[in-house]
Simulated scan of single mutants.
Amino acid sequence: MTSLNSLHDTLSPLLSPLHPSFPFAPIDIIGAMRLSSVINWIATGVFDPQPTAKGKKGIKKDRASIWQELAGLMIVVFGGDTFLAMCTGTTPSWLVTPNIAVLFCAIHILQTRTPFIHLLPTRPSLPLELLLAIPDAIGRTLLLTRFSIIPLLYPSSPSVKTLPATSVSLILVPFILAVPFASIAFSTFNFFSPSLKLTTPVELKAYGWMLVDTWCPLLISPLFLTLIGPVEGWDIGLGWGENESVVCCMVVLWACFTGRAIYNFGYRKEHWLEMFGVRGEKKKTE
C-alpha cells in the first residue's frame, strides 16, 4: 500500500494543471496528441489493406476534411458524456467548460494540418506502442474510475443530477464513456474516411469482443470497485483508498496494453530485431 501511495505521489505532476492560466494537465496533452496520431493513421490509410499488385505503390489516399475529422474527434471524446448528460437532464461537460474540447481540436489541427505532421510517426511500431502503453493506461484508468465511478458514488453537490449508484450503473457508465461512441466514430460511420459510410461496428464482428478497448472497461471498473468497496451499489471490497486503487488499476491496464502492443507488433522475431536496429536479410524472390 505504501508503494502504491508513493507511485501515486510520483504521478501527481502528470495529473495536475501546469499553470492556473493554462488549465491542462500533462496527461491531457499527451492524450490529445495520442488520439490525434491514431486518427491521422486511420485517415491516411495506414491500417487499410495494402495493394499487392505491381505499380500500385505510392498512391496517396484522399483524407476527410478537417471539419469532418474534428466532428469525429468530438464524438470519440464527448459522445458518452453527452449521452449520459441527456439521460440525467444536465448540461454536457464540454458546454460547461470547453477547455478540453479546444485542447483536443487545437492539437489535432496542429499535428495534421501544419508542418508538425512531419514530426508524427508515420505508423505504429513496437517501441512506440510499448512507450505509449504507460500514458494510455494512466489516462484510460482515470476515465474508468475517477471521472466516471467516483462522481456516481460521491456527487459534487446534492443539486447535481446523477444516475443512482447501482451495480449496473457503476459498470455501465464507464463502459458508455469509453466504448460505444468511439466505435461510432472509428468504424460504424467511418468519420475519418473521405465519405461517411455505415458499416458493422468492429466490436460486433467476429472476435470483436476480444478487442482490449472493448473489454478493459468491464475489467477495470469491477476491479476498482472491489478494491475500494464495500460502497453504495457494490457490497464487496477490500476497503483500499482511492489513490491506491487507481494506481493498482493503472498497473493492470498497463500490462493489458503492453500485451496488446507485443501481440500486434512484437511477437515475431523480426519485430524485436528491428526494434534493436538489427535487420535480417530479405529473402530473394524470383
Rank of each mutant, 00 (worst) to 15 (best):
M74E: 04
V46H: 08
D81M: 00
K57W: 11
R63I: 13
V77L: 03
K56M: 14
D62W: 00
F47Q: 07
W67D: 08
M74D: 02
T44E: 10
G72M: 09
I59L: 14
A64Q: 11
G80W: 00
G72T: 09
Q50H: 14
D62T: 07
E69S: 11
G80F: 00
V76D: 05
Q50F: 13
K57P: 01
L70K: 02
A64E: 12
T52A: 13
K56C: 11
K61W: 02
K61M: 11
F78L: 01
W67I: 14
G80N: 03
F47T: 05
K56V: 08
L73F: 10
T52Y: 10
A64L: 04
G79P: 10
A64T: 14
V77P: 03
L73W: 09
A64V: 13
G80E: 03
A43S: 15
D81S: 01
K57Q: 14
F47S: 10
P49F: 01
G79F: 02
K54H: 08
A64K: 06
A43R: 05
L73M: 13
K60W: 03
Q68E: 04
A53D: 15
A53S: 15
D62I: 00
K56W: 10
A53G: 12
Q68Y: 01
P49L: 04
M74W: 10
G45A: 05
L73E: 11
T82Q: 01
G58F: 07
I75K: 03
I59N: 13
A71L: 15
F83L: 07
T44D: 09
G58E: 09
T52G: 15
M74A: 06
T52P: 09
K54I: 06
G45P: 09
F47N: 09
Q68S: 02
I75Y: 09
A43L: 04
M74Q: 06
Q68T: 05
K60M: 06
A64S: 14
T82D: 06
P51C: 02
Q50L: 15
S65I: 12
T82R: 00
G58H: 06
F83D: 05
Q50E: 15
A43W: 00
G45D: 09
S65H: 12
R63Q: 11
K57T: 12
F78P: 06
I66Q: 02
K61Y: 08
I75R: 04
V76Y: 02
F78Y: 12
F83Y: 05
D62F: 00
V76P: 04
L70A: 01
P51A: 04
A71C: 14
R63S: 13
K57L: 14
I66D: 08
K57R: 14
L70P: 00
D81G: 01
F83S: 06
P51T: 04
I66M: 12
L70F: 01
T44I: 07
A71R: 09
A64F: 06
K56T: 14
V46C: 11
K54R: 11
A43E: 05
